[in-house]
Structures are given as structure tokens and as C-alpha cells.
Design a protein around this nucleic acid. Structure first.
Lengths: 339, 339
DNA sequence: TATTTTGTATGAAACGTTTCATTATTTTAT
DNA sequence: ATAAAATAATGAAACGTTTCATACAAAATA
């Protein structure tokens, strides 16, 4: 009689151990059984190299211990860090993470949500852009930075306060004439409040300000035109710039270097996100730091807590400021070589 | 009679449409059925908002269309990029990616491999460090940068050639006295060949060289001691340094700035990996660039191809050099603001 | 019209678990 | 020693699919 070629099942284990199916199940799930039974079952398991089939388990339990995370990409260090922290938080709770980089393809976002509803995952954490996502209200969903609907919790940082903080910092550092730059479309997403907060802060400190927004991410060259127009005799009329993200800040700095404008001597720059090199070395620019650990933790906590008690639809976490060399202060060096 | 509260099943659809179970299955799987049947089934599906339960499918098919990716973290931009590209490549093939950041916890690596063997995933792509991983030969596994065993394919770049290239570049740029620095333990992983390649290149070009290796990643401060010892009258005796990774290069540059050694004027530095800011902006240092797209693509290709024909156990992809401002050449600016 | 062939829908069985009503055994009380 | 109660193992049924042998109807042939 040939040995079965496919993987051993609980039935095989039961037979080998000379016990019933239910007994094997109990041993596997840590439910107490008689000493002698447990020993025999364990022996059979290791003899046969038995492994549970989690699909059969999932079929019964309708629970997968898997969460889908939708994120534009992992190349942007902010997203990469967020992903890493969400993964950590999920792992702590014995959950697994199915990662979907939606990149520019908005249809991926819907596809993954559909998948979630096919029981492949227990819930979704999504940083999405597609404005028409169909989310079944039965599917646990936590949104990052975008308000999706009345019953879908959204975790974000205090973007308004962040904008305000940027204005105040620039004022404190001696700026009198500042600009706000942003790329990306004007969806109903929370980060857009950075602008309002900045304006509010400028008014409070009596700062003259101007705003320039490019809807299309790819047309960043237009900022060059904008900045050139604001130059006279090789001098930029702004002495401070607040960029909606660190990525944008970095590109603006490149641009300014091309225009021979010095940072931070001629113009001070503050970004947003708190991006660091290699995740925890230097800040790449002075920046409003998102509490990325807290955001990750909060998303997971809200998603996995089964109590569906009334909860605030919007969880807004505090931001902070960090000097990163693009303002007239000594940059902070988080935990590097402080000898 | 109350409506069932749980999600509708194929049975419900069959009943609603007045057809057999098998017919519903066919419609769902795109197998031709009579026009009138198909229409009725489709109507029932949309009426009931039916979604297939992929756990039941998985149980039958023993196939999950999911691949686990084991990676230390996503904070390191190189890993983040690799993850992103693997995800892209998997998505193209209709596969999903279960991401596991193993971080410092080596036991996670084994846990995920066990999981794969419980049919939660169809295969694994792993960049692992745990030297004692137990991999069932039945489980499709592709290793990155580490040779795991005779029958486990390993994808890597030409690390030896990379080291050689670094030496040659430094020689071409006028260096006469160079150093190789590395952190991390000396496992049997492929990247260790960078050292041999570098030494080989130095010998070929008649460069004087020295090597300093720190087994423990956290003791990077010891490089400070090392470099201080190699200084006389405020002048470093090396005019070129090759670092085993861009991360290390970056930290060495910080260190040198503290010692008032100028890069690239006093000492030229070459790293390894090809890390760029935000994934595709500037190189953060002059570097040996890994063909990260090809590595990702190759891993997926090898993992998913069902033909188990004899294949080379080691796939070695070519590297290239890129100037990034830490050597005496104009840095390359990949696709940024080339106005 | 009777018979064979072809094409297509049917639904029971199987995948590998977990659950729980039933049965067997041991312990305690009388 | 017997009855009752407590404890623990048993294995059939169910989870929601896919598959495939069977049944049926329509078309083709005699």
C-alpha cells in the first residue's frame, strides 16, 4: 500500500494516533485532553509532519487573521515607514498583512476592496485616492487621511495645526513674506487642511503669504515658472516656503539651487511628513512631523477592536515640528552618532 | 421567514436563479452555459450581492494566488523599492503579496515559512538572515542574496563585480589608498563577495587597501575610532572608501563631516545598492547600483514558473555604477527637473 | 417514427477543518 | 454494591466551493 502523496490531514493524524478527529482538533487548538491522548497525538503529528490547512480553518471560522493594507507605493519613505509600522502592529496581534501598492492604478483599490469582501481578509486599512470606491458597510475599513463616509473611521494627523505650526515657525525664524506650495488634486482629503492652517497662522502672525497649487503631480516644472516670476535681480521675494510634503520640499530645494537661491540663507523651507533618511536617520528637511507610529497603531486598533461602539468618525493625532537644515536652526539629529 | 443574516452562498444564488449549483459555478468561472441560464444566474448574483468565498475555493483548489515576501523592513529605501517592485510584478500576474517585515526577530522568518506550508501562500520570496531556517523542499522558495541549499534558487546581483567596479572607479578617480568598510555578520550570503571583488580590483589597479568589518550593526561608532586612528595632522590617510551599503556610506559621510574630512575633496566614497531619495530622485551617494527591477522580476518569474526544470541555483544579475556627488564627478540626476 | 449521437444541466461527493450532541468512562454519593 | 453525577472522547454534520458521473433533451441519422 502506497503512502498518500498529498499532505497529511487531521484524519491521518487521528488514525496514526488511534484517536478521534475531535481529539486531534483539541490538541491542535490547545484545548486540554487526557495526557496519554495528547502525547499520542503529538507524536503522530511530528511523525507525519502534519500542518494544519488554514483554508479549511478559514472556511469554518470565517476569519483569516489577515488585513489588507492599501497604499500608493512603498517608494515614498513616508509610506514605507507607515507600512512597516502597520505591519509591526498587526504582527504583534498575530495578524498578517496583505500589502497592495495601488500605484497610479485606481482600479486596484476597488479590486482589493472586493477581495476583502470575498473573505480573503478580515479588514482593510486604506490610504486611497479613488473617489468612487464602493465599500460594503459590512467590511471593516479604516481610512487614512481621507473621509470616506459617515460610518468609516478616518485616522489622520492634525493637518490644520501642522499648517499653523509651519507659519508660526517661519514667523519666529524671521520670515515676513511666505508661500504655500502644493501638488495633487483637491479631493476631500484631510491633508488639504494644511493650507487653511497655514493661512490661519500667517494671518495671526501678520505674515504676507501667497499660495500656489498644481493639481497634476507631474507638472512640477510649473513651480519653476512661478518662482522665476517671483524673482527680482536674482533675489526671491519670499523668505519662507511651506511645502505640502517633504517630497515636494525636496524638489523645490533642487529647483532653488538651480535658480541660485540659497536654502536656508535666502529662503527657509518647511515640508510636511517627517521623512528621514533610511527611516530613522536625519530629517531630509525642516518639517512638520506626522506621528506615524501612532497613526499606524491607531488604525490597527480601530480596525481590530470588535466593539462597534460609537466612535468618533475622525481620529486626529497631534503633529510636531523638527528642524532639518532647511531653516536657520541647527538640524536635529535623531539618534545618529551623537558622540 | 427571516432572511439569512450571513453572506449569500452559491446555493442561495442557485435557488434564486432556479438552476443547479454546478451551473452557478460555471458562470462564475467563465465556463460557457446556456444563454438563458447565464442571464438568470448573473441576475441572481447581483440581486443577492453574492461574492465567492475564496476560502472554500482555496480548500478545493489548494491554490491561493498569494506569495509571502520576507524582508527585514521597509524603512531601508532599498528594501522598500524591492518590495514595491515585487508587488508590482506579482500583481501583473494576478498574485497577491503577503508582506512580512521580519525586522530583528529571526523567529518571524521561520513562522512565515511554516505558514506557507499550511497553504496560506503558494510560495515565498525571502531575503532572510536566520541561518537555521527549516524549509520544506515542497514549498516553492526563492532566496534573495543568500544561498540556502542545493535546490533553493537564489537571486542576487554580481556582488564580486560590484566590488571590482568600485575599486576601478576609485582608481580612475585618482585614489591611491583606499578602504573597504562593512557591517553585519559574515553569513554565507552573497553580498560578502563585495569585499573579495574590491580586493581583486585593488590588486589589479595596484591600489593600497585596507579592510574594516564590524560584525554588529549597532557598533557603528567603532568606525569612528578606526578612522581617527588613520588620521594624521587632521588628514585622513585614505583618499577613497568603499562601503558595503549606501546606508553605511551615508553614516560614514556623517562621521567624516564630524572629523572635518571633506567629501569628495579629501576622500571619495562609493556605496552599494543604488538608493535614491523617494525611490527615483537623486542617488544619495556614488554607488554600485543593483538591478532591483530585474531582481524583483526574476524572483517572481522563478517562483511562479511551474516547470521545475533544472535551473541554475544562482542567478547573478549585472550591476552598474552611478555617480552621486560623493566622488569627483558631476552627480547623475536621474529624471528630475532636467530643464 | 424509432434510434443513436451530441450537447448541456444536474447535484452528490469531496476538500480539511470545527463543533456539538452523543456515548463511554470514571468518580462520588448513597 | 448500586445509582447518580461528572468528566472526557467520539464522530457525524456543516462550512462553501469544484468536480464529474449521471440524466436529460435536442438534434441527427436510419
Amino acid at each position: 500500500m502506497r503512502k498518500k502523496s498529498s499532505a497529511p490531514t487531521m484524519k491521518d493524524v487521528a488514525q496514526e494516533a488511534g484517536v478521534a478527529l475531535g481529539t486531534v482538533s483539541k490538541v491542535i487548538n490547545g484545548i486540554p485532553v487526557g495526557e496519554s491522548y495528547r502525547i499520542r497525538v503529538e507524536a503522530a503529528i511530528s511523525k507525519l509532519h502534519y500542518q494544519v490547512n488554514s483554508y479549511a480553518q478559514g472556511l469554518k471560522a470565517n476569519k483569516t487573521y489577515t488585513v489588507a493594507v492599501l497604499i500608493p507605493n512603498t517608494k515614498d519613505p513616508y509610506f514605507a515607514r507607515l507600512t512597516n509600522l502597520i505591519n509591526l502592529s498587526l504582527t504583534k496581534r498575530k495578524y498578517r498583512m496583505l500589502l497592495c501598492c495601488t500605484d497610479s492604478d485606481l482600479s486596484f483599490e476597488q479590486e482589493y476592496i472586493t477581495m476583502a469582501q470575498q473573505n480573503k481578509v478580515d479588514g482593510i486599512i486604506g490610504l486611497t485616492y479613488n473617489p468612487n470606491l464602493l465599500i460594503n458597510p459590512e467590511t471593516p475599513f479604516v481610512s487614512i487621511d481621507r473621509i470616506m463616509g459617515a460610518n468609516i473611521p478616518c485616522v489622520t494627523c492634525d493637518n490644520f495645526m501642522g499648517g499653523q505650526l509651519a507659519a508660526e515657525k517661519l514667523a519666529d525664524l524671521g520670515c515676513r513674506n511666505v508661500a504655500f506650495l502644493r501638488t495633487g488634486s483637491s479631493l476631500t482629503n484631510e491633508p488639504n487642511k494644511r493650507k487653511a492652517g497655514f493661512e490661519n497662522g500667517c494671518l495671526a502672525r501678520n505674515l504676507h503669504y501667497e499660495t500656489k497649487i498644481l493639481e497634476d503631480d507631474d507638472l512640477i516644472e510649473e513651480f519653476e515658472t512661478f518662482l522665476r516670476e517671483r524673482m527680482q535681480n536674482g533675489r526671491l521675494e519670499f523668505d519662507g516656503i511651506f511645502c505640502s510634503t517633504d517630497l515636494l520640499a525636496y524638489r523645490i530645494i533642487q529647483l532653488l539651487s538651480k535658480l541660485s537661491v540659497k536654502v536656508p540663507e535666502d529662503v527657509q523651507i518647511i515640508g510636511f511628513d517627517g521623512v528621514r533618511l533610511f527611516g530613522d536617520l536625519d530629517y531630509i528637511c525642516s518639517t512638520i512631523v506626522q506621528p506615524v507610529s501612532d497613526i499606524a497603531e491607531m488604525c490597527v486598533q480601530i480596525l481590530l477592536q470588535d466593539t462597534l461602539t460609537a466612535r468618533p468618525p475622525l481620529i486626529c493625532l497631534p503633529v510636531s515640528y523638527a528642524a532639518g537644515g532647511t531653516t536657520k536652526e541647527p538640524p536635529e539629529r535623531p539618534e545618529s552618532l551623537s558622540g
